[in-house]
């Protein structure tokens, strides 16, 4: 899977070069047509689980990693972008969130794992608004929760010995005022 992802990326890069050359030869004056095509245009993305999804250009516009390619090339409708770090499930969630204009109510319906996976995807796709939105949602989830909860949430295994943890809580006691030890 990883190898396939790499090779398709290589193909994409190669195609980018070809497109650049082609664009160089293009006749100027095609902008009006391009503007028209922009409306309702969809971009094909292939997810980590091999699903090809057609995503509206308005949503893809928020994915800066894809924009870098689109901006640099004259991609046609048949072009498929591999997003090897994002599953179709997570991409669907992202589409819903963007369409729902980042409503915090939508974030509340997401599982902890979905929140984390969307955050990682937002980081990878370089979607700034989505990253900010999900990071805020996660901050709301972990705010005022016990250390154990936060540990569970982040999937962190406690590798301190009891003594080490007690010692650290003592050193940082100024941040644990009013917090129960258990």
């Amino acid at each position: 899977m990883a190898e396939r992802g790499e090779s398709s990326e290589a193909v994409m890069l190669k195609k980018t070069e070809e497109e650049k050359l082609r664009k160089g030869k293009m006749i100027v004056g095609d902008e009006s047509k391009a503007g028209y095509e922009e409306e309702g245009k969809k971009v094909k993305l292939v997810t980590s689980d091999g699903v090809t999804m057609e995503v509206e250009i308005s949503i893809v516009k928020e994915m800066e990693i894809i924009q870098t390619f689109i901006g640099a090339t004259d991609t046609d409708d048949s072009f498929i972008f591999p997003i090897s770090n994002v599953s179709s499930h997570i991409l669907n969630q992202i589409i819903e969130l963007v369409k729902g204009e980042y409503d915090q109510e939508l974030a509340k319906k997401l599982s902890h794992d979905e929140l984390k996976e969307i955050l990682v995807a937002a980081n990878y796709l370089n979607m700034k608004t989505l990253f900010h939105f999900i990071a805020t949602a996660i901050a709301n989830v972990i705010q005022n929760k016990s250390v154990e909860f936060v540990r569970d949430f982040f999937g962190i295994v406690n590798d301190f010995t009891e003594e080490e943890e007690a010692e650290l809580r003592k050193t940082n006691a100024w941040a644990f005022e009013g917090v129960d030890e258990d």
Partner: peptide, 29 residues
Amino acid sequence: FTVLPDEIILRILSFVDAKIAVQTSVLNK
């Protein structure tokens, strides 16, 4: 579960109260 890299956890901590952020010091090493 998804394991988040430090850089991303740090960015999440930018949205929480400083007290909570310091308390994450006891999560693990």
